[in-house]
């Protein structure tokens, strides 16, 4: 099963090391090259795109986590009108497809003067993550029995104190999982990147998609770029996983 998960990626790696005329029959022929990587990276825009994507992915993840851990906690621990309303809102917005509001979003960011800037891409991403994360975090906090927090109150801890000292550490694996998912999601995100950026803040996925053009698909370059894009993703994942293991030991 793991093999099945890896197969398409392996195929992509294979495509990335075939010359342009060898990508039709990827499984046939023996010409291999590393030139695709160099060719894909040769354009300065590509290096910029790597930096942009990494920057947006990291910032969006950190900011979204900062604002959603608390709201997920709230959804889990407090019942009442405000909490229900918040949950209702999140639910509602999760249901509406991007298609119906991505163009209004484009016009809105244009109107605010932040179209094709980091901020113009970052804030909508955070808005998306907020919905998703508050909800997942609620699930994690739901899974943690609140008894320990009650015990902390009795010991004279404040609500905030109980949250930070008791609930937060217990939810660490969940937070790390979200960190990975959020980072990878933003790193791979396409639709917003496509619509909300122009020449100044292009993201990697958009650059990759530009290997698909009117005269055909440059499989070899697209794959080479995608393979290189796995690098940073892998580093983030490994780093975060390491942290999970450590976090658990504490």
């Amino acid at each position: 099963m793991t093999l099945l998960l890896v197969l398409p990626v392996a195929w992509m790696v294979l495509t990335a090391i075939r010359p342009a005329s060898g990508v039709f029959y990827v499984h046939r022929g023996t010409e291999f090259t590393l030139g695709n990587f160099a060719e894909a990276l040769a354009k300065p825009e590509m290096k910029e795109a790597f930096v942009n994507s990494a920057l947006i992915a990291t910032l969006a993840t950190v900011f979204s986590l900062a604002v959603t851990i608390t709201s997920g906690y709230m959804l889990s621990r407090f019942s009442g009108a405000a909490s229900n309303l918040w949950f209702g809102l999140i639910y509602l917005f999760r249901c509406i497809p991007y298609i119906s509001w991505v163009i209004p979003l484009y016009l809105l960011t244009q109107w605010m003067g932040i179209l094709d800037t980091y901020l113009g891409l970052l804030l909508p991403h955070i808005a998306i993550h907020i919905c998703f994360f508050s909800w997942i975090m609620k699930g994690f906090f739901d899974g943690i029995e609140p008894e320990a927090e009650y015990a902390a109150y009795i010991d004279g801890c404040s609500r905030w104190g109980a949250f930070i000292r008791i609930a937060l550490p217990m939810a660490t694996p969940g937070i790390v999982a979200l960190f990975i998912l959020s980072w990878l999601y933003t790193w791979n995100e396409f639709l917003f990147a496509l619509i909300l950026t122009g020449s100044r803040t292009t993201m990697l996925t958009v650059r990759m998609a530009q290997f698909v053009h009117e005269t055909g698909i440059e499989w070899h370059l697209m794959s080479a770029t995608a393979v290189m894009a796995i690098g940073p993703a892998l580093i983030v994942t490994l780093f975060a996983q390491e942290y999970v293991v450590k976090g658990l030991k504490i």
Binding site: I103, V212, H213
Partner: peptide
């Protein structure tokens, strides 16, 4: 010259939105 490449997939949508809203891109 500032070059703003746009994928074919969204070219019409994006340009149309830009033209109808008189954006300066």
């Amino acid at each position: 010259l500032t070059l703003v490449p746009t994928s074919y997939e969204v070219y019409v949508e994006k340009m149309t939105a830009n033209l109808t809203s008189r954006g300066g891109q």
